[in-house]
Design a protein around this nucleic acid. Structure first.
Lengths: 341, 341
DNA sequence: TCTAATTCTTGAAACGATTCATTAGTACGA
DNA sequence: TCGTACTAATGAATCGTTTCAAGAATTAGA
């Protein structure tokens, strides 16, 4: 009941193991007649090549590890889907690990991937693990940072200019006349949060009569957004911001939920709202959400390409690609509520 | 620059390779002094165990393959997260493959996983691939069907009683007095769709004055839901259904989007709405969605357990677990719009 | 001090593929 | 018929572990 090996096939076909291997890898080195005989044996025995043995001999696998911060966030789902597609074009598979913003799980996955001798690791880091990643690189496993700029240029990286995105989002609110801006934050040690806030600050600084308030959420989830929103709706009318910029779309969806609950506040008339990431659910929210679109498909694909670069030319300098995010205007910031899509 | 092997460690520590292996796998077979010496060498050389070689020797990997229908659907994300957690408790890793309802990609992943000699495959099948899966089993790779009942009892399976779920959803609409029911379908060759419809039929049959209409969507996505919704809002007032049951939440969210767009229809007063899956975004929709909750975490975890069962006892009969889904009532079907959560 | 029992350590074999230097076989021209 | 040139096929070595029978070293008991 043991799975058939190349040796079994060789015996069955009456040839040497090397010949079977050639049939699989260099078919035209083998005479037509022999090849047919071997192929028949392969079918008859139900032989499936053992990739583990192949990898051992080759010294590396056909696998790429991807470690994301939150698989429940459509932003990362979308990236991983793109990475998977791009990788499979070159015959590689992507193994997905979900750190869930937990440094221990992150470490666990790095260890696992290194033991599995993956070709490379794409990672959206939770914590500062430059050291661990350098060790990885030193031993030959390539690393590409995803959605995180390379601090010292040690690694290749794909990222999106979050400061610029934060600026764009906030500038848009200011441009439509809002002056009492609030930033709905997530935990500020997430660089995504602090960078977007920095951008918001830059934009507000350009308008002397504008103010920026920070509403602290304790996570980047819908629930956290609702919690922040609930505190907001309790305020006096005059103390409300008229422009809200949320650190991501999940927060923004939670905000919408809270703000529309009592039907006392109108979006965007009373409060205009901008999210970040432009996830699919943002476009299909009941008040379609203006958001900052990140090219997730490009991010995933580029990560794979940067990795391929490193693999093809081991001495290549790491390269960083930074995308510019784009504003997508929808009903949550447009007074004339057009219903077009 | 080649990664250090166990042999390098042995040389460096002045012991035999077998001893290094023992330090890693059976530490108490090795004298304290020797063990320390070996551990030092391991650290100094930055040795990382090569899991590929280990697997080759062991004959199997520590990896489990999971093939889902749509990684963009939070239903599957949630299952895979649970499976991953459960697997990691026993030191196994889950490799995720996304078939995207495409039979070719499905086949591709099965091949890949078999070549990688994964311990087992958890799969939510697109097409009827019983034959291919039987071949897998015959060669020693265990199979567990996920969200799909085992047709002939050939494989272990975890599923949820979709007929019952469809019944429950529809019965709820009938119980709150709705009689003109419509089922918003996805492609009917998805068994999830046809089963839920069957349940809906059963419920409607219990009420002589009730009717059931089928609105055909061409996918199980938010966009498809909007398309169906758009055709619906064009209808005359009298021809509208007063109770809608959507084949899944994504469709339902699209429906809400369309129905509320023109502010001519009220949910639930004019049309009550029930979805299916109870994804996170259902609870946080602006009209919180009544839905049929599936125990996704349990599904993922149980799939891993069923697999473990097969692995521990290769002769164990396949076992099928069927969960009952549960109705979760929210504002989309409750006239007295309570704002509690 | 000697023997027996116990604990440590050794190193070759095995896992299943690929590689590559050799050998075997074939075809052709002289 | 022989030699040359080429194509096919062979099978041992290799990748980095784990396993395990056997040998070496240590300890305990008398």
């Amino acid at each position: 009941m043991r799975a058939a090996s190349i040796k079994d096939v060789a015996t069955h076909a009456g040839v040497a193991v090397g010949t079977v291997s050639n049939v699989l890898n260099y078919p035209d080195r083998v005479a037509e007649k022999t090849r047919q005989r071997v192929l028949n044996s392969i079918n008859e025995l139900g032989f499936i090549r053992n990739d583990v043995a192949r990898q051992l001999r080759a010294g590396h696998s056909r696998t790429i590890g991807l470690i994301v911060l939150d698989i429940g966030n459509p932003f990362f789902t979308s990236i991983s889907r793109a990475a998977e597609d791009a990788a499979s074009e070159s015959g590689n598979a992507v193994v997905l690990g979900n750190s869930g913003h937990d440094a221990n799980r992150e470490r666990h996955y790095i260890d696992l991937f290194e033991e599995q001798r993956v070709q490379g690791v794409l990672i959206s880091p939770v914590s500062d693990i430059t050291e661990r990643l350098s060790a990885l690189t030193a031993r030959g496993t390539k690393v590409v940072l995803v959605d995180s700029p390379s601090s010292e240029g040690d690694f290749s990286s794909v990222s999106v200019d979050d400061v610029h995105g934060g600026y764009t989002a906030t500038k848009h609110l200011l441009d439509i006349g809002r002056r009492k801006i609030a930033f709905v934050a997530g935990p500020q040690h997430f660089h995504q949060v602090s960078d977007r806030l920095a951008g918001a600050r830059n934009a507000v600084a350009e308008f002397p009569d504008a103010t920026l308030e920070i509403l602290q959420g304790n996570d980047l989830t819908v629930l956290a957004g609702r919690e922040v929103g609930d505190t907001l709706v309790m305020r006096q009318q005059g103390e409300l911001p008229d422009g809200l910029f949320c650190a991501n779309d999940l927060l923004a969806l939670g905000m919408i939920q809270s703000l529309t609950m009592l039907h006392t506040l109108r979006i965007p008339e009373d409060v205009a709202l901008v999210g970040y990431d432009d996830i699919d659910f943002a476009a299909s929210a009941v008040v379609p959400l203006t958001s900052i679109s990140q090219p997730t498909a490009m991010i995933g694909r580029t990560a794979i390409e940067l990795l391929a670069e490193q693999l093809d030319n081991p001495d290549a300098k790491p390269r960083s690609v930074v995308f510019k995010p784009e504003l997508v205007v929808r009903a949550s910031t447009t007074e004339a509520q057009s219903h077009q899509r």
